[in-house]
Simulated assay, not measured.
Amino acid sequence: MSLKKSFSKDKQTCKVTFTVSKEAAQGAKSINLAGDFNSWSSTDTPLTLGSDGSFSVTLELAADREYQFRYLLDGCRWENDWKADKYIPAPFSNADNSVVVTRQ
């Protein structure tokens, strides 16, 4: 898993590529990204399967913010990003949420 960030020239937005490696996907057929940026929708932000077996999606997010998120594998198993910028306890479960920080 990984997060790749690219800031706009005016530093107002940050393109973040969320990637789940083939190993981390553990044979999943589909992966969706849910977080603050999509009202925690489990279906609005699907990741695309790459030729190497990894899944990824790129989102343009506002800069200078922190966004909580998690991955939903095959519609039934929640996973965190192993390389998130940090983790915050989830308000409605015993798990943590991954966090991506969009500031330089």
Rank of each mutant, 00 (worst) to 15 (best):
M1C: 12
M1S: 15
M1W: 11
L3Y: 09
L3H: 06
K4L: 14
K4R: 13
K4H: 13
S6E: 13
F7Q: 02
K9I: 15
K9Y: 12
D10F: 06
K11P: 01
K11H: 06
K11T: 13
T13K: 10
T13E: 12
T13H: 15
C14D: 04
C14V: 10
K15C: 11
K15R: 14
K15G: 11
V16H: 02
V16T: 13
F18S: 05
F18L: 05
F18I: 06
V20S: 01
V20H: 02
A24P: 09
A25M: 04
G27M: 01
A28N: 06
A28I: 11
K29F: 07
S30Q: 01
I31A: 02
N32S: 05
L33G: 00
L33S: 02
A34Q: 12
D36W: 13
D36I: 15
F37E: 07
F37T: 03
N38S: 10
N38Y: 07
W40Y: 10
S41V: 00
S42N: 15
T45E: 07
L47H: 01
L47E: 01
T48S: 05
L49A: 11
L49H: 02
L49Y: 01
L49D: 09
G50Q: 09
G50N: 09
S51I: 06
S51M: 09
D52W: 04
D52H: 06
D52G: 05
G53H: 06
S54D: 06
S54H: 01
F55D: 01
F55P: 00
F55W: 04
S56K: 02
V57D: 05
V57M: 05
L59W: 03
E60H: 03
E60V: 08
L61N: 04
L61D: 07
A63C: 07
A63T: 08
R65I: 12
Q68D: 09
F69Y: 15
Y71C: 01
Y71D: 06
L73G: 01
L73W: 00
L73K: 02
G75Q: 06
G75E: 10
C76Y: 08
R77G: 00
R77F: 00
R77C: 01
R77Q: 00
W78D: 00
W78P: 02
W78F: 07
E79H: 04
E79D: 10
D81I: 07
D81E: 06
D81R: 06
D81W: 00
W82V: 14
K83P: 01
K83N: 13
A84D: 03
D85H: 14
D85N: 11
Y87C: 08
Y87L: 13
Y87P: 11
Y87A: 08
Y87K: 11
I88S: 10
A90D: 14
P91A: 12
F92L: 15
N94E: 14
N94C: 08
A95F: 15
D96V: 13
N97Y: 09
S98G: 05
S98Q: 08
V99A: 11
V100I: 07
V101F: 12
V101G: 05
Q104S: 11
Q104L: 14
Q104N: 08
